[in-house]
Write a protein that binds this DNA or RNA. Structure first.
Lengths: 149, 149
DNA sequence: TGATCTTGGTAAACGTGTTTACTATAATCG
DNA sequence: CGATTATAGTAAACACGTTTACCAAGATCA
């Protein structure tokens, strides 16, 4: 905050928490992409796969809407990614009898193997990536709670 | 929470800092979008515009590459957005004499007015959005420094 | 029953962000 | 000088994320 430019309190982008949040997420996305490359999965695909895995052990059947809610993504995104994962043989989508609109999502054997191995890689990556900021997770939880996310 | 599922240390997505970072950024993007809607600007467009404004007061001429470096975006993104902003009459892109490859980016009067007003709105938004987590900014700076971002 | 409302899923369009590859110009070095 | 190398900018392709709108099927209620 200075003389040359009276119009921004954050003349330098690095003074804006939003800008930093954006930068950090972009960096995290790029790095995680490398960690998941050998599984041929993107982060979003991994999240959907992990949600399918988790939910399928809790309650059957798993609909796309339930999956989206658990993964905190919108149903449109879930729809796109699940169709893609189905195409790759990682999940199956079978329409239900009692509600023919809904698809029951289940992991194939390949899907299960993939998500388990990928989860390992993600955990290892995160431990390293966030190692320098152990309190970040708590801060983000507070932020999301405060903003109703 | 552990017994049912031995394969994830973060069975619940909310236990993963990366997942939280992603959620927080998505929420921030959605909310900021609303704050910038009346200027017909997205966040990325605002960042580019703000960088053009700031740099044009520091050193002339402002090339697209210099702008991208200052805004920490890649030159491809800068190229796309600047062409779009030029189409809307917010900036001009004039090729240089001493280097005909480079474009000198300058704000139009409308562009200047817009970015100044938008910056105001962004600052106000950020103060509210990040009000609950005053130490987040420092954490993100540490993270970016540690990861060489 | 029929009319209405709600819900599961998708299509299309738009903007963001990355990667690969390319053109054309500038700089450098033999 | 000519050959190489570096740089500014762009095209195209792909994946993410949102919004709007729509269809079809289930639920509800008069």
């Amino acid at each position: 905050m200075s003389s040359a430019n009276p119009l921004f309190s954050f003349e330098n982008p690095d003074d804006s928490p939003g800008f930093l949040l954006w930068q950090a997420t972009n960096l995290w996305q790029r790095e995680l992409k490398k960690a998941l490359a050998r599984f041929d999965l993107t982060h979003a695909q991994f999240v959907v796969l992990a949600a399918a895995y988790w939910l399928s052990q809790q309650r059957e059947p798993v609909t796309q809407v339930a999956l989206a809610a658990h993964a905190h993504i919108d149903k449109m995104m879930a729809s796109k990614i699940l169709r893609l994962l189905e195409g790759r043989g990682l999940v199956t989508r079978v329409s239900q009898q009692h509600d023919t609109r809904a698809n029951a999502v289940t992991l194939t054997a390949t899907g299960t193997r993939t998500v388990v191995q990928a989860a390992w890689a993600v955990e290892e990556f995160e431990a390293g990536f966030f190692g320098s900021v152990p309190t970040l997770q708590g801060q983000l939880q507070i932020l999301l709670a405060a903003q109703g996310g």
